[in-house]
Design a protein around this nucleic acid. Structure first.
Lengths: 369, 369
DNA sequence: TTGAAAGCGTTACCAG
DNA sequence: CTGGTAACGCTTTCAA
């Protein structure tokens, strides 16, 4: 069992204790002096191993447990933590491999900068969440998929500390060209001749229900991710002469495989059945594949499916999707937060994406009804 | 867009600003006074809506962004955060459904007590990790599967704040009777007539490698979980006359499905093949099932498999396992930490477990070589 | 090189 | 009931 002594901190303490011993007489006479009284300790400089041990022992016995992190933070103005804001329940947030990758990149950069991550779940956008945001001892926030209308976002801005977003709110931003990404996916569908198309997305119904929902104005959607990704598809379809009103939009109650499958049912059980069902995330799209399997429909032949993210399971399921660099997104979010660039142009980072075509998409004519 | 004003905080600020206006003359003449100067603000008590708005406006314009959480923490002695110590990389930690459930329970209790979670990953047990532990502004630590020999654990104890463990270090403890749990599983195997048995566990080889390893003294293992669970199996086997030296122990490089499969290979490719392969976690055991599938071996007929935890995938795989209440474990860890009981007896909570027998275990004679 | 003191921004306490 | 002051424990600066 090897003890590790922070001599520097002990030295600081020795000086502080000495100081207090001196000022104690006019503040709380005697108390501190009796409690600590570090005068007997030798200067730490010659640092023989036995002396280290001795100092360590003394410090422990006197009840000193190292420099107080809170006081250090207050004085130095550095909290040493990044707040991570997210809406979904913890169990769901960490079910999404994309989210985990993002967090991993963020944690990596945080660790390199001697910074921890403070989880701030915004289950409901209520007073408790606002309080959590206001009370978080952090140097900044990284916002992970929180719609801009949340009052908690307002509270985060009000803190006057850096906030890194993945949507267009705020001055620090790391993301991708969502519209161009899904436009490429939409063009892929158009080239394959699809015309009856359903889109599964979350946060497009105000009440988070599962089911078909009319989205007359894509621009009006409050969720940045759903809005942009639907816009890309809409533009690609429009360029090929397919009007948005002909596209079936289905709300998923949340970003999970199960919700994706439930939402897909509303598309697949229609007649005529859509020849393609696309989703705004891979997790939802994997649910669509589950729904296909439950109906003995073949992906890419009977129904084409496209996801978004390119999580490992997507490759395993031979699913066509848009690949985005999740790890890098997390890393860059961390760097932007810890060291915000002066040039406004550098404060918004757009990362490249790539359409990965696999077996889940095929010509519309193949197995359609 | 509705603003939410924390009148109480603003009132505190008004008083603080007023205070500073008074003391400014002897500290930094004029500066603070000019910067804030809150004298014009009416008392907040009559609180007409317009007045709220006015105060809010004034505060924003003066650059006041709400009470400083760090200062509040220093003064109140409450950090408002629980540190979560874990060894594995973030991506792996959140791959384990058991870990996620545990965290969810913890987060639930934390949220109810207006407390956040600070993630403190201990990737290596190096100086950086020690620094992270020492610098964490937290009211206590919850230790999630960190072996007791870690220097970071030493640093956590030295902090002098509550530390909740799932092993026997420390005064606050929430866990299960690990030995009795696996003893029940071992007795189940004995009843089924198994005699050639392999055990897959992590943290049983000092170098974290995958492969067979001799464990002459189970008591000497540093990892609490592996030590206890192996002890339970050993005792059950011994009671049935099966000596520990005849049992094959295989080290897995980490707690993941892939590592479990890799470790299982070292058991399944032996001749004679073991009739049962048990693992210390469900994740490892699922890997064992993967390894069986890769060799066209039938679980419960050719080879019996037992896991531990009873995560959802275990039920789906019809796997025999020991069920433990992950969510409750997290909840109780949170409660113990935030409100440590005075009675030492109440500071150690043992939760019940249950052997869940499914199709992955069967008589040894059935399909053995 | 060593030591004293100011102040970070809050809350709690104690006079008036 | 209001308002002024001390103190939380550290770091930094300034003086000896």
């Amino acid at each position: 069992m090897e003890y590790c002594i922070d001599l520097e901190a002990l030295d600081r303490y020795r000086r502080a204790a000495g100081h207090e011993a001196h000022v104690a007489d006019r503040r709380r006479p005697g108390r501190r002096l009796a409690q600590h009284g570090f005068e007997c300790v030798q200067p730490a400089r010659p640092a023989l191993p036995e002396l280290r041990e001795k100092i360590f022992e003394a410090a422990r016995e006197l009840g000193y447990s190292g420099p107080n992190p809170t006081a250090r933070s207050l004085r130095s103005g550095r909290a040493g933590a990044i707040g991570v804001l997210f809406t979904t329940a913890l169990s769901i947030a960490f079910t999404d491999p994309y989210a985990v990758q993002f967090l991993r990149g963020l944690a990596e950069v945080a660790e390199d900068n001697r910074t921890s991550l403070l989880l701030v779940p915004l289950r409901d956008d209520d007073e408790g969440a606002l309080e959590a945001v206001r009370n978080a001892s952090v140097d900044g926030f990284v916002v992970y998929c929180v719609p801009g209308w949340y009052k908690a976002m307002e509270a985060a801005w009000a803190r006057g500390i850096p906030v890194v977003n993945s949507d267009h709110f705020g001055s620090l931003f790391v993301g991708i060209d969502e519209i161009a990404s899904t436009r490429a996916a939409g063009e892929h569908l158009m080239r394959l001749g699809h015309r009856r198309i359903a889109i599964v997305a979350d946060y497009i119904a105000p009440d988070r229900r599962t089911g078909e929902v009319r989205v007359p104005s894509v621009e009006g959607l409050g969720s940045y991710v759903s809005r942009e990704r639907l816009t890309g598809y809409r533009d690609a379809f429009a360029a090929a002469g397919l009007d948005w009103s002909e596209v079936i939009t289905i709300s998923a109650a949340g970003n999970s495989r199960e919700h994706g499958a439930a939402a897909a049912a509303h598309a697949l059980d229609r007649s005529p059945r859509p020849t393609a069902v696309v989703a705004t995330t891979d997790l939802l799209a994997l649910g669509v594949l589950d729904a296909l399997a439950a109906r003995d429909l073949r992906p890419g032949r009977d129904v084409s499916v496209i996801g978004f993210d390119d999580i490992p399971d997507a490759a395993q399921a031979h699913m066509t999707t848009v690949r985005q660099p999740a790890l890098d997104r997390g890393r860059i979010a961390g760097r932007l937060l810890l060291d915000p660039p002066d040039d406004p142009a550098d404060r918004r980072v757009i990362l490249p994406t790539e359409l990965v075509v696999r077996a889940s998409t095929g010509p519309a004519s193949a197995g359609s009804i």
